[in-house]
Structure formats: C-alpha cells, structure tokens
Simulated scan of single mutants.
Amino acid sequence: MSKFNCKTYNKIAKKGLEILESVDISINEDRNVDLLLLRSQNMHDYDFDSTLLAVGRAGAGTNNIPVEKCTKNGIVVFNAPGANANAVKELVISGMLLASRNIYFGLTYVNSLKNTDKDIHEEVERNKSKFKGAELRGKKLGIIGLGAIGVLVANDAAALGMEVLGFDPYISVDRAWGLSTSVKPASNLKNLLSNVDFLTFHMPLNDTTRDFFDFEKMSSLKKGCTVLNFARPEIIVESDLCKALDEKIINKFVTDFPNNTLLERDNVIGLPHLGASTQEAEDNCSIMVSRQLIEYVHRGNIMNSVNFPNCVLEPSSGHRIAIFNENKPNMVGQITAKIADKGLNIIEMMNKSRGEIAYTLVDTIKEPSDDLIDNIKNIDGVLFVRKIY
C-alpha cells in the first residue's frame, strides 16, 4: 500500500496524476486522505480528514478553498501560479480582436443567413461595411496587474504594435525583468484610464480588489474604450458597469464571466469561461501542483503555497523534521534546545515566516525519536510537527 493517498475532484489532467503515481502516491483509494487535488470544486463545507496534509489547486485562484481553516489545521494549500498564463494571454488577445474587428457580430450575422433563400455571397458583400472595425496596431492598451498573465499580455500586445501602459504598484522584481522595454509604466491609475483604447485586468480577487472598478473609475476612461475582464467578475461593480455600457462610456465589454444581466446588452461579448481551457494549460497546472505536493510530503519543502511561507531546504544525508509554529521570539531556540537535549546534532536548518505563522525544517544526523517529536509538540507555540524521513 502506498504511504500517501490523494483524492481528486474535477477532471485532473492525466500527466499530473502519472507523476504522483510514479512516486508511489495512490489516487482515490478508499481510505484516509492525505492529499487533495482539485480545480473548481467548492471545498468550504468539506469535512477535512485528520490525516490531510495538503490541498493542491490545479490553477491560480483559491477562492473555492477555505484557506484560513486549512491554516488553523496545519494544511498547506498550494496553487499553480502562471501555469495557465499563456492560455489566458492568448484569449485576451483574441478578445481584443473580437471587439476591434467586430468578428463576433460579423459571425452572428453570417450565421443568421443559414437556411434562407438569400444569396449569401451577395448579402455579405452588401452588408460587410456594417462590421468595419479597427486595427490593434497603434492603439493604446492599459493593463492593471502585471503578474504572470499581465506581463505576457503586455509583451505580446507590444509585439503587435500596440502602445502598452501598465499599472501595478506591487509588481515583483522578477516580473519587472520579464517586461518588454517598450511597455511603459503609468504614473497613476487615472492617467492610464484616460489614455487607453483597451483596458484589461489581471489581478487576484481579495479584499483590496473586490469592487475595484467602480463608476468613479469608469468615468475617467477615454471615450470609446473597450474593457476586458478575464480575471475575476467580482473586481468590477456590475451595476456600475451596466450604467457605463448603457451611457456609452464603455464602448464594448469582453468577459469570460457572462451572466443574464450583461448579455441583455448588445455591446457585451461573453465567453464561457475559456481562460484556462486548453489541454496545455490543464497539463501545466496538473504537473506543477503535483510536483509541489510531492516535494512537500517527501521532503517537507513548500513552494507556491498561499497560506504558509515558501521554504526549500536541499535534502541532506540525515533525517528531517518539519515544524509549524507561531511566529514569535525564541521559538527556534526552544526547538533546537529540545533536539540538543536528546544528543542530536543538526546538519542543516531553515526557518521561514509568513505573518503570524512560521515554518521550520531541521535535518539531524540521527533519526529523531518519538519522544523528541512529542517534546517539540509540547513547546508552547508549536502547532504541528511531522517527521519527514
């Protein structure tokens, strides 16, 4: 029997599952669950097994996972940031073309001619001027959020000849290095909004970004701007958006999150949440999060967690203990003192913190006894202890 059992929800790409099975992690066996791997499954009412170590989200967003509850129970939540970035980027570029060249409305018109007695060739030649559009080259694109997806959109739009303005006060150094030199930083948000022909959002959903784009900001837009949302529907105040569309403040709205209210309007182009719906993106997400789960259960390493600090310690020739503890003074001192009391030498050690939580990996020459593990657990402020190997 495999040491670890992984339960899956939704359709997880086979390539990731094969990686798990290759290291003797079983999939969906009828026994206690050590790992969860999912996509969009709502887990807020899920009753977690006491054996659960980690949850892997084969995608970027984790709004369907009770992250705070997981943290309190020592359950690490992983995601796959950037694994679907190229797929979303391509759809954003497609969305701009759909809107600027009136492709959607042209297709709708041509399809309406099916099963009629009209000469379709003559009809389209007579009416094609109704669908005359505009080229992307030379137009200004504003991007709010320069993470993995935003940077790719910026670079490809620039390559198409668009003038790109980016706004992200929290951009990382790595992302900044990845930006094309032709992408210009906006001095402020209002300056960006008032100058662009297209506006696209690439930001996570959190307390700061919820209802971010309201009527006040919409009113600052350049007249005739096309807005695209392939991020999260909740970052836009829908009632304000409808008002801006009805008053022609916004020319067209392209979204991956259509609903009844939005589709009542002719200037809305809705797609059926296709952002990450490519085989390549599903493979990438599944492979990425599977590798992270393996690193965690086999070596204690944490990469791309949304609730615990990233902490990667190269394997040594000894034995490893993983410790979750409160982030307060002298925790490391107390842990190492307990190890020293048992006469164990420490080979390597790493301690990382994130907010009120800290995570410590300790490699010792000799295998730690169950008595030592209990002694560490009994330290005030220690939350969970796991012997890795």
Results as ranks from 00 to 15, higher is better:
L37F: 03
K243H: 11
R31N: 12
T278A: 08
L113H: 07
F253Q: 02
D34G: 07
A60S: 12
F167H: 13
T71Q: 13
F105G: 00
S317W: 02
L228I: 11
E238K: 15
I365Q: 15
N73K: 15
E348L: 10
V110H: 01
E367V: 10
F167Y: 15
K252E: 12
T8A: 06
K252S: 11
D174G: 00
N375G: 00
N301G: 07
R39K: 12
S26M: 04
R354L: 15
I249P: 00
L245T: 03
I103W: 05
R57G: 01
L199N: 04
Y46G: 00
D207V: 05
V297P: 02
F384M: 12
G224V: 03
S50M: 08
I373E: 05
F257T: 05
E264I: 08
F212T: 02
K252W: 11
L372H: 03
N345L: 02
K89P: 04
E90N: 14
G275K: 03
I27E: 06
E356S: 15
S369W: 10
L52C: 08
D246V: 12
T364S: 12
N115A: 13
L38W: 09
I65M: 08
V227S: 06
V289Q: 08
T261Y: 00
V55L: 09
I120M: 13
P66C: 02
I93N: 04
M350W: 00
I373V: 14
L241G: 01
D174T: 14
L113K: 12
I19C: 09
D49Y: 10
R39N: 10
D24C: 07
G147L: 02
F167R: 09
N127H: 15
N188E: 10
V67P: 03
L17G: 02
V124A: 04
N84P: 08
N206S: 08
S40Q: 14
F198Y: 13
L293I: 06
E216C: 02
N10D: 15
D49S: 10
L192N: 07
I149C: 01
A158W: 04
V385I: 06
L271D: 05
K377S: 13
F212S: 02
M162I: 01
L241R: 06
N327V: 05
Q334F: 09
L199D: 07
S316V: 03
Q334L: 14
L241S: 03
M203C: 13
V110W: 01
K7A: 12
L113F: 01
V382Y: 03
S286F: 10
H273D: 09
T208Q: 15
E234L: 13
L53P: 02
R386I: 00
K184T: 13
I249W: 07
I171A: 08
D266T: 13
T278S: 13
